[in-house]
């Protein structure tokens, strides 16, 4: 018997699933230079809402890992920190995208086989 899953459990699983995807999305979006707020807007426009409490620690982590480079610049009378994908970051992004496609393909295959099995 399938137990109905409560909304908290679903939310936790959803966040867990999103966590890895967000790294991929941030790296992909930073192929062109952005600062935090515009990056959030770009992600949001593409259906990936991310709050600043998640985004900024993630940016710092990726920068510490050498996948992003950042610099402070003044724009519109305000100092802003601009982020850009580094050379290492570009390489990692390619590898992660390949992994992503493999996962997507594997899951599709499993789902396809399962649906054939139940038909």
């Amino acid at each position: 018997m399938v137990m109905p899953i409560n909304s908290d459990a679903f939310e936790n699983l959803r966040l867990e699933l999103r966590r890895g995807c967000l790294v991929l999305a941030v790296l992909a979006a930073l192929r062109s230079e952005q600062y935090g707020y515009t990056l959030r807007k770009i992600l949001s426009e593409h259906g990936l809402e991310i709050d600043e409490g998640t985004l900024y620690p993630l940016l710092r982590r990726l920068e510490t890992q050498g996948l992003l480079a950042s610099e402070w610049r003044e724009e519109e009378k305000r100092k802003k920190r601009f982020y850009l994908l580094s050379a290492d970051g570009a390489l990692v992004l390619e590898q992660l995208l390949a992994e992503w496609r493999n996962l997507d393909s594997s899951i599709h295959t499993i789902l396809k086989e399962q649906s054939h099995g139940t038909d």
Binding site: G36, Y37, E52, R60, W72, R78, K79, K80, R81
Partner: peptide, 13 residues
């Protein structure tokens, strides 16, 4: 550093 960045984010919004 973090406060400067967060501040920029809030004021931009």
């Amino acid at each position: 550093d973090i406060i400067a960045e967060l501040s920029g984010d809030i004021y931009s919004q």
